[in-house]
Design a protein around this nucleic acid. Sequence first.
DNA 1: CCTACCGATCGGTAGG
DNA 2: CCTACCGATCGGTAGG
Lengths: 211, 211
Amino acid sequence: MRKVGGVTVQAGRGYAKGRAKRREILGQAMALFGEVGYRGASLREIATRCGLSHPGLLHHFPTKQSLLLAVLEHRDEVDSAELLSGRTGLAVLRGLVDLTALNATRPGIVELFTVLSGEATAAGHPAHAYFAQRYQTTVRTVEHAYEQAGADGVLQPGIEAAAAARQFVALMDGLQIQWLLSHRRLDMAGILRAHLQAQLTVPLAAGSSLG
Amino acid sequence: MRKVGGVTVQAGRGYAKGRAKRREILGQAMALFGEVGYRGASLREIATRCGLSHPGLLHHFPTKQSLLLAVLEHRDEVDSAELLSGRTGLAVLRGLVDLTALNATRPGIVELFTVLSGEATAAGHPAHAYFAQRYQTTVRTVEHAYEQAGADGVLQPGIEAAAAARQFVALMDGLQIQWLLSHRRLDMAGILRAHLQAQLTVPLAAGSSLG
DNA sequence: CCTACCGATCGGTAGG
DNA sequence: CCTACCGATCGGTAGG
């Protein structure tokens, strides 16, 4: 097998087609889960949007739950790694403000995580463990970022990293709810940036995604 | 009809029983909607929990949607009015911190609003209009509270009421998500109070629900 | 308030 | 990858 223009050809041709279909399924599933939640989404509707029968879809993902987890893991791979890798301290927080600005151009992704995180607060939900783990990791990352920022001397006095981390993550989630319910008439990134700026002794960069 | 010990008797007896059953249905529906959302809840399950057949339930609430809206309006009557009436400025914000502390003793109510507000961000959801309206009203109330607090001279300089209101409401929602996903190991009211305190020039009261 | 039923839809499987 | 089917469950109605 060799690659040409990112597509594996010859012996791998069938596999490449399968992988492309897999990506299409993940995209359509992400959109529908975001529109109506996990429970509200049907395999038949997702399959139809991909030009498949629903047993055809189950050939790629054996159960509905496996499709859900694949969607969530796919999003994490694409996003978190890209915007947060190799950063420490204030740069992590700036990266999360930039991620919020980016998400304002991707309503489908905001809907996905807002609808599913609400649904998954219930103990029996198939993504409950995933979200519980995800929040623990995220809060810890943000907490370390605040600790480092404090050590770097850019934080206002009296700011506790643990509480500040919980507040920062809560703000991101709560602003997404308001953004969706106000039909996107809300500057999520601006409001988040204002919150962060008020905790700092130095000005944040202008707000682009530059390091 | 006359009332004895809060229960209407004699000619009103049947009505009182009907109203008691209605309240029982509202309570069980609130619990199940909170556990599994609107879509995940079935009329049969709610009815069974009340000792009814599901057509029996539909005698009290003609459609599933009417039951949902009745549950939401019932909660608003009981809560918002009681804790926020007749307050202005900082007292409104203090009332919301106290409401958060109260909610930490009522997981069912927190689940209800967290699950449903996520579900209802979708445009077609039967409670979408309700939540859109509710957030607009809440944000405006909190914004006016910040404006009044600023006029009263208890706010740190540079705090904009509009952004501060969005932040405050977002924090309440986001902390509820984290609270549920961390199996209630989180001091929601304490973290919210710390956020508010950092914006003030005066100390908040000790944190009881005293005016 | 009940039993009995309607048509629709669900996730998943059989068999090819 | 398909058609055809499974048992289960859904919201709502008929009729009493």
